[in-house]
Design a protein around this nucleic acid. Structure first.
Length: 205
DNA sequence: CGGTTTTGACCCGCGC
DNA sequence: GCGCGGGTCAAAACCG
């Protein structure tokens, strides 16, 4: 099967820990990257025989993704724990087809990172167990229903949790460059590992 | 002036 | 049925 289109091609889901910060020096791409999907085999950094959720981290992960039911994971990091429950999967079993969903946690001073796509904010909510607001964005391209949520980790405000939902049905509005290298973006294999360094969202003139 | 952001209201699903 | 929490809508404000 083909891999879904990367909703955020600026991020590459690496499976080793030698990750080079892609977003300036105040950015520490981080501790958590996982895909929440329909239980299929198109995990982002899925290794052989691994569940459809992968973590890039030295932290502890327990993941219960048996069957096609909801995925529950607990990520322990010293004195903090991150829990994720994918409700969409359960809903998808009886209703509409599940949308592709990708979530990851990054250490960044910036709340919103430019991923090359154009987003329009449509909501902001305070959520339980998090003093920080959660922001909701939609892709502003016509006909594109991709959404993303951005919130600061309630347990560690240094981290930003970003969740993408859906697949872009259009090209990236602006090319993305990593240093002198244009990010190799293969629609059919977007989970391939890439070297990321710094980012520029507008092409050199 | 058009696109984006803000923000309160509304809707819906879920648990009790 | 009710309350809670999360997600979305939409009108007004804001901005370039």
């Amino acid at each position: 099967m083909n891999f879904p289109q990367n909703p955020n091609p600026n991020f590459t889901f690496l499976s080793d820990e030698n990750f080079i910060s892609p977003f300036m020096d105040n950015f520490d791409f981080a501790n958590l990257m996982f895909e929440v999907d329909e239980g299929g085999n198109n995990g982002l950094v899925q290794e052989e025989n691994s569940p459809p959720i992968s973590i890039v981290s030295s932290e502890t992960l327990t993941c219960d993704s048996s069957g096609s039911g909801s995925a529950v994971m607990t990520l322990s990091k010293k004195d903090s724990t991150f829990d994720c429950i994918n409700r969409g999967i359960k809903d998808a079993e009886t209703k509409e087809p599940p949308s592709h969903r990708v979530a990851f946690r990054t250490r960044s001073k910036m709340d919103v990172m430019d991923d090359g796509y154009k987003w329009r904010k449509y909501g902001k909510k305070s959520v339980k167990n998090n003093i920080n607001k959660r922001n909701y964005y939609k892709c502003s391209s016509e006909g594109c229903m991709v959404k993303k949520r951005i919130e600061r980790d309630g347990k560690d405000a240094a981290y930003v949790i970003t969740t993408y939902e859906g697949v872009h049905n259009h090209e990236i509005p602006s090319h993305v460059y990593y240093s002198d290298m244009v990010l190799s973006y293969d629609h059919n294999n977007w989970n391939q590992h890439s070297l990321l360094q710094s980012i520029h969202t507008s092409p050199p003139s």
